[in-house]
Amino acid sequence: YETDHQDYCEVCQQGGEIILCDTCPRAYHLVCLDPELEKAPEGKWSCPHCEKE
């Protein structure tokens, strides 16, 4: 399936195990989030940028 999400972390610009925001195209490593997450959230997730909106 096709997605318009970026394939690198918004914070460190590296690829790998990233989680995708359900609201925007941004993607993040769990450890690059502040506060960092230990595991990917279940269900819908909005990144810090979208949470501020």
Results as ranks from 00 to 15, higher is better:
G43A: 06
Q6C: 06
E10K: 14
K39D: 05
H5N: 09
E17Q: 03
P48K: 09
Y28K: 02
D34A: 12
G43F: 07
T3F: 15
D22M: 06
R26H: 15
H49L: 06
L37A: 07
E36A: 09
V11T: 15
T23I: 07
P25E: 04
Y28S: 08
W45I: 07
G15Y: 12
Y8E: 15
H5V: 15
E2C: 15
E36W: 04
K52N: 03
D34I: 04
H29S: 00
Q13D: 06
R26S: 10
L33P: 05
S46L: 12
D7L: 02
Y8L: 12
C47T: 03
Y8M: 13
C21G: 01
C50V: 02
E2K: 15
H29Y: 01
P35C: 04
G15M: 13
L37G: 11
E51M: 03
L33V: 09
A27Y: 06
C12R: 00
K39N: 12
K39Y: 04
T3P: 04
C24Y: 01
V11W: 09
E53P: 14
Q6A: 14
L20V: 11
K52M: 12
L37P: 08
A27H: 08
Q13P: 08
G16A: 09
H29W: 01
C47F: 01
C50P: 02
L33K: 01
I18M: 10
E51H: 03
G43K: 12
E10F: 14
V31F: 11
C9S: 01
E38Y: 07
E53V: 04
L33I: 05
I19L: 13
V31L: 08
T23P: 00
V31T: 10
A27D: 04
W45P: 08
I18C: 02
V31M: 03
D34L: 06
E2N: 15
T3A: 12
D4A: 14
D4Q: 15
T3K: 15
K52H: 14
C9V: 00
Y1D: 01
E53S: 02
Q14I: 03
C50I: 03
D4I: 11
E10I: 14
E17M: 12
W45Y: 04
D4S: 08
P25M: 06
D34T: 06
E53C: 14
W45T: 03
A27V: 05
E10A: 09
E53L: 11
E51W: 05
C50H: 14
C9W: 00
E42S: 05
G16P: 02
D34R: 07
C50K: 03
Y8T: 08
D7H: 04
L37C: 08
H29M: 02
C32W: 00
Q6D: 06
L20H: 14
Y8N: 14
D4M: 15
E10D: 07
S46A: 07
H49M: 05
